[in-house]
């Protein structure tokens, strides 16, 4: 790791100010991605602005079907939230399936979506749930937020404060873990509510998380595994790497969509 100056932010405004003052600052959340990258000497920020002391950014609020999750809420806190489990069990399951216990107790929802790893779990959940991403400057719809591999609609220095969504009537998530990293080799989040069906796929697309129109149309007509079998799932635009090829990922989209509905 290279030398870096560490700051602990007292508030979101304080974090923003410290970020502006730094020559090449970076926000630190759970550090589960950022710190390994720094240890590998692949990232060398001049300053780290730690968001962990900001109480406003932590916690899950459920009122009726409206759900708000603070950016600094850990995966473990989401996974263990009983109220959330009642209205949206799939997101609870998703959070409980990220990494290992150590990762889940450090990693945060804000860090995960800001990073937008193409194999991360949350992007699929938030895209399928039509979530809103709240920042210190504005609100961004999930459809506009996830813009490609490791890229988001965030501007330089913009801080995610929370995500919110309306819990749908029904939803589900199934992930086929990469055998080595246990990130998603393919993960499919399905949700149905207010007449709309949304299906988001992570781990498979060569440009990151995406919505699958064919599955959405078929499932809007018939919310069943049989309907999934009737959809043609193309391997075009899917990733091939040392773990598997695009054809297998196309197959996994089908298999995981069926498991997500079941």
């Amino acid at each position: 790791m290279y030398d870096v100056t560490y700051h602990r932010a007292a508030s979101v405004d304080d974090a923003a100010a410290k970020f502006s003052a730094a020559s090449d600052g970076q926000l630190l959340a759970g550090g589960q991605t950022l710190l390994p990258t720094m240890k590998h000497r692949l990232a060398a920020p001049s300053d780290l602005i730690d968001l962990r002391g900001i109480a406003d950014l932590v916690g899950v609020k459920v009122s009726g079907r409206k759900v708000t999750i603070g950016a600094m809420t850990t995966h473990a806190a989401v996974a263990e939230n009983a109220e959330l489990a009642k209205v949206c069990p799939a997101i609870v399951k998703l959070a409980g399936g990220i990494g290992d216990p150590a990762v889940r107790h450090q990693g945060t929802i804000g860090g995960s979506i800001a990073n937008n790893d193409p194999a991360a779990d949350y992007p699929a959940g938030l895209l399928a749930l039509a979530a809103t991403i709240h920042t210190n400057r504005r609100e961004i719809a999930a459809d506009e937020f996830f813009t490609g591999l490791f890229s988001t609609g965030l501007d330089e220095g913009e801080i995610i404060t929370a995500v919110s969504f309306d819990a749908p009537e029904t939803c589900g998530y199934a992930k086929f873990p990469n055998p080595a990293s246990r990130y998603a080799m393919t993960g499919v989040f399905v949700s149905k509510g207010g007449g709309a069906v949304r299906v988001a796929v992570t781990g498979a697309g060569s440009d990151g998380v995406f919505r699958h129109e064919g599955l959405e149309q078929a499932l809007s007509k018939d919310w069943s595994a049989a309907a999934v079998d009737g959809v043609k799932i193309s391997a075009d635009g899917l990733m091939s790497d040392i773990h598997c090829d695009a054809a297998y990922r196309a197959n996994l989209i089908r298999a995981m969509a069926k498991r997500a509905i079941a």
Partner: peptide
């Protein structure tokens, strides 16, 4: 796994499955 140029692709536990 090495690629055709001899770069090691399975160079961490993210890609080498124990």
């Amino acid at each position: 796994v090495y690629d055709e140029d001899g770069q090691l692709l399975s160079a961490s536990y993210m890609d080498y499955t124990m």
